[in-house]
Computed example of a mutant assay.
Amino acid sequence: MISEELLRIIACPKCKGDLKLSEDGNFLICERCKIKYPIEDDIPILIVDEAKPLND
């Protein structure tokens, strides 16, 4: 699980905006870019090319 402290300091690598944890805890969401970054083995994959559109 991603800690609250980590959520406060990480940012979207594309726009530098805030990220929030998805309800299921499997993604970090950037509402500004309308994309989500996967979390694998409790490690956020903050690579723009790995991000998926929010509507997926």
Rank of each mutant, 00 (worst) to 15 (best):
9 I>Q: 12
12 C>F: 02
38 P>H: 08
46 L>I: 12
42 D>A: 09
30 C>R: 05
27 F>R: 13
14 K>L: 10
3 S>Q: 14
56 D>N: 04
4 E>Y: 13
27 F>E: 00
13 P>C: 02
53 P>E: 15
43 I>L: 11
16 K>E: 11
27 F>T: 05
17 G>V: 05
25 G>L: 13
50 E>A: 14
45 I>H: 10
15 C>G: 02
9 I>W: 10
11 A>E: 09
10 I>H: 00
35 I>A: 02
49 D>G: 11
11 A>M: 06
1 M>T: 15
25 G>S: 06
52 K>D: 04
38 P>L: 08
50 E>G: 02
33 C>G: 11
37 Y>L: 03
47 I>Q: 03
34 K>C: 12
33 C>Y: 08
41 D>V: 01
25 G>K: 11
28 L>W: 08
56 D>C: 00
48 V>W: 08
55 N>Y: 13
34 K>W: 09
8 R>F: 02
25 G>M: 08
29 I>Y: 01
41 D>G: 10
33 C>V: 04
11 A>R: 15
48 V>C: 05
7 L>D: 02
14 K>Q: 14
29 I>G: 00
25 G>C: 11
45 I>V: 15
8 R>N: 13
3 S>A: 11
44 P>R: 11
11 A>L: 03
34 K>T: 07
27 F>Q: 10
31 E>W: 07
37 Y>R: 02
23 E>G: 14
48 V>T: 07
54 L>K: 05
54 L>I: 14
44 P>W: 12
19 L>Y: 03
27 F>I: 05
3 S>F: 10
8 R>H: 08
26 N>L: 03
47 I>A: 09
21 L>R: 14
19 L>G: 00
54 L>S: 02
34 K>I: 08
17 G>C: 04
50 E>Q: 15
5 E>C: 10
25 G>F: 12
2 I>W: 09
6 L>P: 00
23 E>D: 14
31 E>F: 10
53 P>L: 13
22 S>Y: 06
46 L>P: 05
6 L>T: 01
38 P>W: 11
18 D>M: 15
26 N>H: 09
3 S>V: 01
36 K>M: 05
39 I>H: 02
12 C>I: 09
8 R>D: 07
1 M>D: 12
45 I>S: 10
48 V>Q: 01
8 R>V: 10
39 I>R: 14
33 C>P: 05
13 P>W: 15
21 L>F: 11
35 I>V: 14
40 E>V: 08
4 E>G: 04
31 E>H: 09
38 P>T: 11
26 N>Y: 10
19 L>M: 04
25 G>H: 09
22 S>H: 13
21 L>W: 04
